[in-house]
Simulated scan of single mutants.
Amino acid sequence: MCFVISVSRVMTAREVRELCAELRNDPALLLALELIVKQEWCKRKMASAPTLAIAQ
């Protein structure tokens, strides 16, 4: 499985390595983070989806 980590601030290489190691060593944290990201993605996808209208 491939993940892309996006951050709101500039991180040093050391911080990135520590974050990746923490996620790799704690599968529950990784699952929780994945669930949050998927929920946000679905919200954005639904918000940008056009509404269906009945043609008369």
Rank of each mutant, 00 (worst) to 15 (best):
M1V: 07
M1E: 07
C2L: 12
C2F: 12
C2V: 11
C2M: 10
V4M: 06
V4L: 14
V4S: 09
I5N: 05
I5S: 01
S6L: 15
S6F: 13
V7N: 13
S8D: 13
S8K: 06
R9I: 05
V10L: 11
V10F: 06
M11W: 10
M11I: 07
T12L: 02
T12P: 00
T12Y: 01
A13E: 13
R14N: 10
R14M: 06
R14C: 03
E15A: 06
E15P: 00
E15C: 01
V16N: 01
V16S: 02
V16Y: 06
R17V: 03
R17T: 05
R17D: 11
R17Y: 01
E18G: 00
A21I: 00
A21F: 00
E22D: 07
E22N: 04
L23F: 13
L23I: 09
L23Y: 06
R24G: 03
N25H: 10
D26I: 01
P27I: 07
A28T: 07
A28N: 08
L29E: 04
L29D: 02
L30Y: 00
L30S: 02
L30F: 05
L31C: 11
A32E: 14
L33F: 04
L33S: 11
E34R: 10
E34A: 12
E34T: 15
L35F: 09
L35D: 15
L35Q: 15
V37I: 07
V37N: 08
Q39C: 09
Q39F: 07
Q39D: 14
E40S: 05
E40P: 00
E40Q: 12
W41G: 02
C42V: 13
C42W: 12
K43H: 13
K43S: 11
R44T: 08
R44W: 03
M46A: 11
A47K: 12
A47W: 04
A47C: 02
S48M: 13
S48R: 15
A49H: 07
A49Y: 01
A49D: 04
A49K: 13
T51D: 14
T51C: 10
T51A: 14
T51F: 12
L52R: 05
L52N: 01
L52W: 04
A53N: 09
A53I: 09
A53H: 12
I54Q: 12
I54D: 10
A55W: 04
A55H: 08
A55T: 12
A55M: 09
A55P: 02
Q56C: 11
Q56G: 14
